[in-house]
C-alpha cells in the first residue's frame, strides 16, 4: 500500500525550478531516505506534501489524500519534524508535546513521549527558550511522535543532535517502522540514511536521479565493496579471473585487495585466495553511500567532504558507536 505518491511534481520559483517532475512512491511501513545536498529541493518537496506550498505542476497524494485539497486530513495523520524552525520559546517541552497531543485528539502520556526522546523531567518543565539545540530537537521530535502518526516526516532530523541523540533517533525511527508507521527521512547526512532506511531516493537539482535500496544502488554502480586480505605470501596466480562479480585485484606487499561488484562475490573470492595461501586477516569495506551519491550527483555533499570519515563528526561518532 502506498503512503506517498507523487506524479510529475514540480515547483518553480520564477525561473528557478526547485523540484522538477518528481515521480516517486513510498510504501507503507517503509523507511524511505530522501537524500540530496542542500538546495536539492528536499524541503520544498516536503512543503508541497504538507500543503504549505502549491505545486506548479504535477500531483501528490499522502495517505491516499490529495495534498492540495485535503491537507488537513493529511496533517491529522502525520508527525512532522521540520527543518529550520523555532518553537514557542516561553512554553516548556512538556507543554508543547501536551498541546500536540490535544490538537490531534490523542490520549498519549506526554511524560512517556518525553522519556522516549530523552528529555528528563526537570528539563521538560523548563522553557524551550533555555534549551540547547539538541534538546530543542528532542522536544520537536516529541511533538512529531504525538498521536502515533501513520507517517513520520523528518526533515534533517539529526541536526543539532549529539552522537547519543542520533543513536536515539535511529532507535525511534526503527520503533516507529515496527509499529507500522511509514518514515520519510530527509537528510544530507549519508550515514544516517544508510543506517536506517530501507530505500533511498537521491534528489539532485530538483530531480530524482536514483531510487533504490542502498545495496542495490551500490550494485547498480558496481560500487559494491572492497576486500583486503592479508596473506603469508602472495602466490603468482590468485585464480580470480573466473570468479564472477570480481571487478579487480591489486597487490600491495602481502595484502591482496579485491573489488567485489556484488555481495555474492566475496566468499568465492576469499575461498580462492585461501586455497592458494594462508589468510591472516580480512577487512571488508562496503562502498559508502557517499560514493554512490557522488556518482549520481557528480559532487560531494555541499561540495565538501561532509559525511566522510571525520572522527569529530557526531554523525560519524554515532555510527561507530552503534
Amino acid at each position: 500500500m502506498t503512503t506517498i505518491s507523487t506524479d510529475g511534481l514540480t515547483r518553480r520559483f520564477g525561473d528557478v525550478v526547485a523540484v522538477d517532475g518528481l515521480t516517486m512512491t513510498v510504501e507503507r511501513e517503509e523507511v524511505y531516505g530522501f537524500l540530496g545536498p542542500n538546495g536539492a529541493g528536499k524541503s520544498t518537496t516536503i512543503d508541497m506534501l504538507l500543503g504549505f506550498k502549491k505545486p506548479s505542476a504535477g500531483s501528490a497524494t499522502v495517505l491516499g489524500e490529495d495534498v492540495t485539497k485535503r491537507s488537513r486530513a493529511v496533517r491529522s495523520r502525520i508527525g512532522l519534524l521540520p527543518e529550520g524552525y523555532e518553537l514557542y520559546r516561553n512554553l516548556t517541552g512538556r507543554e508543547l508535546i501536551a498541546s500536540a497531543i490535544e490538537t490531534k485528539g490523542a490520549h498519549d502520556d506526554p511524560d512517556e513521549i518525553l522519556d522516549r526522546v530523552g528529555l528528563d523531567p526537570d528539563d521538560a518543565r523548563r522553557a524551550v527558550g533555555d534549551y540547547s539545540t539538541g534538546m530543542t530537537q528532542r522536544a520537536a521530535l516529541g511533538v512529531a511522535l504525538a498521536g502515533e502518526p501513520d507517517l513520520l516526516i523528518l526533515d534533517e532530523p539529526s541536526s543539532g543532535l549529539d552522537p547519543k541523540g542520533i543513536k536515539l533517533l535511529r532507535r525511534i525511527v526503527r520503533q516507529e517502522a515496527e509499529r507500522g508507521a511509514t518514515v520519510f527521512f530527509s537528510s544530507h547526512h549519508l550515514d544516517q540514511v544508510e543506517r536506517v532506511c530501507d530505500r533511498v531516493g537521491i534528489l539532485h537539482d530538483g530531480r530524482l536521479v536514483a531510487e533504490n535500496a542502498v545495496d542495490d544502488l551500490r550494485e547498480e554502480l558496481d560500487a559494491g565493496a572492497t576486500m583486503e586480505v592479508d596473506v603469508d605470501a602472495v602466490p603468482d596466480d590468485l585464480g580470480m579471473d573466473d570468479v564472477e562479480g570480481v571487478g579487480g585485484v591489486t597487490v600491495d606487499g602481502t595484502t591482496v585487495q579485491v573489488t567485489c561488484r556484488r555481495p555474492g562475490a566475496k566468499m568465492p573470492a576469499l575461498r580462492r585466495i585461501d586455497d592458494r595461501a594462508t589468510v591472516e586477516d580480512v577487512v571488508i569495506e562496503d562502498a559508502s553511500l557517499e560514493s554512490v551519491f557522488e556518482e549520481y550527483t557528480a559532487e560531494g555533499i555541499d561540495g565538501s567532504a561532509e559525511g566522510s570519515a571525520d572522527a569529530t563528526d557526531p554523525q560519524r561518532q554515532a555510527a561507530e558507536g552503534d
Binding site: F52, R75, L80, Y85
Partner: peptide
C-alpha cells in the same frame, strides 16, 4: 522563525 510549520504541521 519557522514556528508556523510546527503549528500548521499539526491538524
Amino acid at each position: 522563525r519557522g514556528t508556523i510549520k510546527f503549528v500548521l504541521g499539526l491538524p
